[in-house]
């Protein structure tokens, strides 16, 4: 009973954070800001859902797969975000006008000279 309550609330919490991630994807201005929402909330939300599944199922093959899924998401998601952000910057996708500073572009200009 306690186990089901805990598992279900984790799953709902995860779905809530997934929702915030998607909302951020729509509301934030440029690629980089959107990646921030997409990596953080979606990683945490999906990990929450998987952890909930693990608590519901326990140490069965089913629950263990959920645990393994958490590890893979934690390893893969930041790497993917890093690659997308770097590729976007290298192909000169502009930052939103409210951006304060871009020291990455400054450094690359000085290197080319």
């Amino acid at each position: 009973m306690i186990r089901e309550t805990l598992g279900m609330s984790l799953i709902f919490l995860g779905i809530a954070f997934d929702f915030f991630g998607v909302l951020g994807l729509v509301r934030l201005p440029d690629v980089y800001n959107r990646l921030q929402a997409a990596t953080k909330c979606v990683t945490f939300g999906s990990a929450g859902v998987l952890l909930g599944v693990f608590i519901l199922k326990g140490f069965t093959p089913f629950g263990f797969k959920a645990l393994l899924g958490i590890v893979f998401i934690f390893l893969a998601s930041p790497v993917a975000a890093h690659v997308i952000a770097r590729a976007a910057h290298r192909t000169n996708i502009p930052l939103t006008p409210s951006t304060v500073t871009d020291q990455y572009a400054d450094d690359q200009k000085t290197q080319k000279k």
Binding site: F20, G24, P29, A37, S98
Partner: peptide, 26 residues
Amino acid sequence: EMIKANVHVAYLVIHPRVPIKPGIIK
């Protein structure tokens, strides 16, 4: 730290004016 990060992003996204001040630093 990650839990804090998520609450922070959730706050930014829900806030009606989206109070961000983005930039790339090193």
